[in-house]
């Protein structure tokens, strides 16, 4: 399940952190390397707790590591559509 509206810059942040390996990041955040791989590939959305921990390891804020595009969020698009339908003409 690949998401288009939530993305992350973990790969870039690892590069700027002296080419930190996925295993090192996994060890510092208390998860497996496979989970880091899945997050980087957009196959898994980490919990808020893990997201904060990853950002903390890089010394960044959540917004600097993770990005959210509200206009591409299917739930918001669906809600907007249903709202438009109920609008009086």
């Amino acid at each position: 399940m690949k998401s288009e509206f939530i993305s992350n810059k973990i790969r870039t942040q690892r590069f700027f952190a002296g080419e930190m390996t996925q295993q090192e990041l996994a060890d510092k955040t208390g998860v497996t390397r496979q989970t880091i791989v899945a997050i980087e590939n957009g196959k898994y959305f980490p919990t808020l707790e893990l997201s904060f921990r990853i950002a903390y390891v890089f010394g960044k804020t959540l917004e600097e590591v993770f990005a959210y595009k509200a206009d591409e969020d299917p739930v918001l698009i669906k809600l907007k559509k249903s709202k438009d339908k109920t609008k009086p003409i």
Partner: peptide, 11 residues
């Protein structure tokens, strides 16, 4: 391959 010793949130 390093055998994962923990079970994380994804698992």
């Amino acid at each position: 391959e390093k055998i994962p010793e923990i079970t994380d949130e994804r698992d």
